[in-house]
């Protein structure tokens, strides 16, 4: 399944490393990344493929939520379909 991930937090060193290491450890493939800092807020969007992972979507989502809570990152992961539908005619 293709999913969009968003990560937002006050900017600091190591956010990308932390998130991407976790994804790699779960076998989730990153297809595309965009990242910027807006008014001191780190904002990253990733297009990922969860079908390469042996973990279920719910497990990946929980692991990301847990990582978000422990490192004070706001992380979402949602099916990509919804974004394409809302922003492309």
């Amino acid at each position: 399944m293709k999913a969009i991930m968003t990560v937002t937090a006050p900017d600091r060193v190591g956010i990308i490393a932390s998130v991407c290491t976790l994804l790699a450890s779960m076998g989730v493939n990153i297809l595309d990344i965009n990242q910027t800092v807006m008014d001191g807020i780190f904002t990253m969007t990733l297009l990922v493929d969860t079908s390469t992972s042996s973990h279920k979507f719910d497990e990946i989502k929980s692991a990301l939520t847990e990582r978000g809570e422990s490192e004070k990152l706001n992380i979402h992961i949602q099916r990509a379909d919804i974004f394409n539908a809302m922003h492309r005619v």
Binding site: T6, T43, F83, M86, R88
Partner: peptide
């Protein structure tokens, strides 16, 4: 991939 602003708009 869609732009950051489109994606963040939906999340917000």
């Amino acid at each position: 991939m869609l732009s950051i602003s489109d994606i963040m708009q939906t999340v917000n």
